[in-house]
């Protein structure tokens, strides 16, 4: 197991290296002068532009700048926000817990709902329950989360006045954003759980369990369910990444402070150090979550370790 984890950790190193290169290179890919673009909304003199270039060390060679970017990043310094003149890491870590809270709540909701729907559909294959659940799932995948957010605000905040429309912090502020964000993922998990459950129900060990005379409930709960859920775990990492970046839209709809909203504001304000910092944290978060999912997968299913 330790060998597997070490190999998996080692494989992550080039990816992290590549992610930092990609995020750092963003500044170089801007058509024209990045400093002029960043300061386009301000009245600036050539001296101020030159000072800004010096402040961002843009006159140094590429690899010197990259080395400094990584070194500073490892020491918790991702530069200074152009708009607010505050450290980027400070701005990010002030709002990051809210984004993680939202993504985790959405993942929990989508897992419970998706698995329940998927199992129900598989057990009643080709019935109206199955067709209804899967049509609902296809609709769920097709529904824009940000539009669902608006509809939830319209119904539960403006009409029924049950939940707050905007802001963050406590549970009432979390419910609607988590539902809006999680329903699409629930639909994907429902489809995967259904298909995986159908595969398991056709295996020989389930037939054996039935042949032994076990009740349908015991066969499903004790023999089929846990095995059917193994493939679903792999999709958690993928879904968590999608949910994490989905916060970009949901935090905007609900006016909720978070990393997604911070990134959008930074892009609209052309605050490049803040854009780089937010994109980097999102990507690194995704890499770490996928690493954890792979390890959990290997713990749950020992066959993975020996492949």
């Amino acid at each position: 197991m330790i060998r597997y984890i070490s190999a998996r950790l080692l494989a992550t190193v080039p990816v992290v290296f590549g992610v930092t290169i990609a995020v750092f290179s963003m500044l170089y890919l801007i058509p024209g002068d990045p400093v002029k673009m960043m300061l386009s909304e301000f009245q600036t003199s050539p001296e101020q532009i030159a000072r800004m270039r010096a402040q961002l060390h843009l006159n140094d060679p590429f690899f010197v700048q990259y080395g400094r970017f990584v070194w500073n990043g490892l020491h918790g310094n991702l530069g200074t926000s152009i708009r607010d003149d505050r450290p980027v890491t400070q701005e990010i870590f002030e709002v990051l817990p809210q984004t993680v809270q939202l993504a985790v709540a959405a993942l929990a909701l989508s897992s419970l709902l998706g698995m329940a729907l998927g199992i129900l559909a598989a057990l009643r294959q080709n019935s109206w329950v199955d067709i209804g659940a899967m049509t609902l799932a296809t609709l769920g995948i097709s529904m824009p989360s940000f539009w669902l957010g608006l509809i939830l605000i319209l119904i539960f905040s403006l009409r029924l006045e049950l939940l707050p429309a905007a802001g963050g912090g406590d549970l009432p502020h979390l419910i609607m954003p988590a539902v809006a964000l999680g329903l699409g993922a629930a639909a994907i998990i429902a489809r995967l759980t259904r298909s995986s459950m159908l595969d398991i129900l056709r295996t020989e060990f389930v037939t054996t369990a039935r042949a032994k005379g076990l009740t349908g409930r015991t066969v499903v709960l004790r023999h089929a369910l846990l095995n059917a859920l193994i493939p679903t775990i792999t999709i958690f990492g993928l879904q968590f990444g999608t949910l994490l970046t989905g916060t970009v839209f949901i935090e905007t709809v609900f006016g909720r402070p978070g990393l997604g909203r911070l990134a959008i504001q930074a892009i609209l304000n052309k605050d490049f150090p803040l854009v780089q910092g937010s994109v980097l944290i999102f990507a690194l978060g995704y890499v770490v979550v996928n690493l954890l999912v792979d390890i959990v997968y290997a713990v749950v299913d020992p066959r993975i370790r020996y492949q």
Binding site: V15, G18, V23, M26, I30, V275, A283
Partner: peptide
């Protein structure tokens, strides 16, 4: 494939977001 692996490390909409931030809305 190493380059593809790096690009796949940017989840969902994030890569598009990064590219729009470079090219402009």
């Amino acid at each position: 494939m190493r380059i593809i692996d790096v690009l796949l490390a940017f989840p969902g909409i994030l890569l598009a977001l990064g590219i729009v931030s470079v090219l402009g809305p």
